[in-house]
């Protein structure tokens, strides 16, 4: 702990580390007595107009913030949770009036949909799933995938929402006989889904048929987590994060890795290791990938951004106002980066 703090204080001023690639656009603070756990951006429809809104989640409250003309944010809805704390926001693309959240203590026990009734705009919540939920992800075409249970007793389900946020139908995917850690969508192939498992396999599903198409073993760091994949020229390019990777003298501290997989032969090769620039230390704490950019909060409290096409770190954001970063998300609605701190502060940067 003390070593990490020393490294933060030794960092040069923000401007010299971050030459213009991240510009602060606006910031606000969510006044809450509980710890801030997640932040996200989404489109919310009010009076037939869609607005880019921000969602903040504390352990006991989820809030929706709408933009005002003056680059300020106004809280318009709050949902309260008194029994089970909120763990994360689960954005579902293409749904405009609904937020999904995962609740639990250490592990996810419930997934709930948060919405407003059309008549009086009052906040409502609906229980979607409950049980020993291991992984959940919102997918394009208004779908939500979740895995419940472990090993052989695992159920992988896809739920599809209607445009106004109602749930339409459910479909099962063939479960692998190993516990799923995370799901990742495949850009350029809407009917494919990837999952990483606890024994470092990547599994590939056909979302239309529910078939388990392939299991690919990846020779990488333990407990690697897939964030996103791209389908190009018969190959899958997969972005993994490495929360458990140890720093090595040869590479430094590896945070993300770009891996190429031939799904036909189940062979894979690492093609890019995203390591921290010299002088930086810390491991991956949490992160987000969109398009060809990957952002991570490090255990040092710094946010780092990599351009996966350029192959190097393009921005570093040291702790602001004396506080470490704890959350980082791409807005999804545009090229903005949301960075959050435990006390409820949210900073919005243009990348």
């Amino acid at each position: 702990h003390s070593i990490e703090q020393t490294e933060i204080s030794d960092l040069p001023a923000q401007d010299s580390l971050n030459p213009g690639s991240l510009q602060l656009v606006s910031k606000f603070k969510n006044p809450s007595s509980s710890c801030s756990v997640d932040v996200s951006a989404m489109w919310w429809e009010r009076a037939a107009a869609k607005e880019p809104c921000i969602i903040t989640a504390c352990e006991d409250v989820v809030s929706l913030w709408k933009p005002l003309d003056t680059l300020q944010w106004k809280k318009v809805h709050t949902w309260h949770f008194t029994e089970v704390p909120v763990l994360q926001i689960v954005p579902v693309p293409d749904v405009y009036n609904l937020i999904c959240v995962a609740l639990g203590n250490l592990e996810i026990r419930e997934i709930r949909a948060l919405l407003c009734s059309s008549g009086d705009e009052s906040e409502k919540q609906v229980l979607l799933k409950s049980g020993n939920i291991k992984a959940v992800l919102g997918l394009t075409k208004r779908r939500l995938v979740s895995s419940i249970g472990t090993f052989c007793n695992q159920q992988v389900q896809i739920m599809t929402f209607t445009e106004d946020g109602g749930s339409k139908d459910e479909q099962l995917l063939m479960p692998p006989d190993e516990t799923i850690l995370a799901f990742a969508e495949v850009q350029g192939m809407q009917d494919a889904l990837l999952g990483t498992t606890t024994v470092n396999n990547i599994v590939i599903w056909n979302l239309k048929t529910g078939q388990l198409l392939k299991k690919v073993h990846i020779d990488s760091y333990q407990a690697s987590v897939c964030h996103r994949a791209y389908s190009e020229m018969g190959l899958l390019f997969v972005v993994l994060s490495h929360p458990c990777a140890k720093e090595s003298q040869a590479f430094g501290s590896p945070v993300f890795q770009l891996l190429v997989i031939n799904p036909k032969t189940a062979q894979s090769v690492g093609i890019l290791l995203c390591c921290l620039p010299p002088g930086q230390a810390g491991r991956f704490l949490e992160g987000d990938v969109t398009g060809h950019v990957a952002a991570a909060v490090l255990t040092s409290g710094t946010v780092a951004v990599w351009d996966l096409l350029l192959g190097h770190c393009t921005a570093l954001l040291p702790p602001a106002s004396g506080q470490r970063w704890s959350l980082v998300k791409w807005s999804g609605t545009d090229s903005h980066l949301l960075a959050g701190q435990k006390d409820g502060s949210v900073f919005i940067y243009r990348y």
């Binding site: 078939q211 392939k214 020229m233 018969g234 031939n262 036909k264 090769v269």
Partner: peptide, 23 residues
Amino acid sequence: CSTADLGPISLNWFEELSSEAPP
């Protein structure tokens, strides 16, 4: 390692694996 280690590549891998995998 190099991409040569990946073996023969098929542009239609998704359809081919879907026809081979159990329903």
